[in-house]
């Protein structure tokens, strides 16, 4: 399916191309649904009404069916989160090694409560279930990046990494040079 004019404004050309490939990839078109929702959310920030409508149209199912599926999965959201969504695992292995202390520290540093978004829209913080990093606990994810072996004192440094990405890029360039 070629991207429509609305698609061009909703999704980047790269994402539109990815969608074209995804609906062709599976023996059954609908199998592309969950990956499409994830990639759309990565780009748009959340599953807006326009995203739901566009995905439904591309797969050939109703918007209701898309919502029915999307509401099942905990990573999919219908409201924007911060640009960097901090997901603190507090499940057993992380809890035993101080996850709640780390979670508290993030809230303190950012001045927001659970699922809160900072006023500049840069960060949000939430408690999540096991993220599969139990032996390197406590662990968090910032969007898709893992950070392991945390302590409350490491929290400000992690936030700085995301606040000042330009400095990090310069460091990377130095490394590559």
């Amino acid at each position: 399916m070629s991207p429509t004019s609305e698609t061009m404004s909703l999704f980047s050309p790269a994402l539109a191309r990815r969608f074209d490939a995804l609906v062709e990839k599976y023996p059954v078109k609908r199998s592309a649904l969950i990956p499409m929702l994830l990639y759309a959310q990565d780009e748009v920030g959340y599953l807006s009404d326009a995203v739901v409508a566009e995905v439904a149209q591309r797969i050939g199912i109703t918007e209701l069916e898309v919502r029915n599926v999307a509401t099942y999965y905990s990573m999919l959201r219908f409201k924007p989160a911060g640009k960097f969504n901090i997901q603190v695992c507090t499940n057993i292995s992380c809890m035993l090694r101080g996850a709640y202390e780390v979670y508290e520290r993030f809230q303190e540093e950012l001045g927001v409560g659970p699922k809160g978004v900072t006023s500049d829209g840069l960060f949000s913080v939430e408690e999540v279930e096991c993220i599969g990093a139990c032996c390197w606990a406590p662990a968090i994810q910032v969007n898709y990046d893992f950070h392991d072996d945390l302590k409350p004192d490491l929290v400000p440094g992690i936030l700085d990494q995301y606040r000042n990405p330009i400095q990090d890029q310069e460091k990377d360039q130095e490394k590559n040079a």
């Binding site: 499940n91 292995s93 096991c130 139990c134």
Partner: peptide
């Protein structure tokens, strides 16, 4: 889909 709390081997 490794999700059982305490399990991180497939990772």
């Amino acid at each position: 889909d490794e999700s059982e709390p305490g399990t991180c081997k497939d990772h």
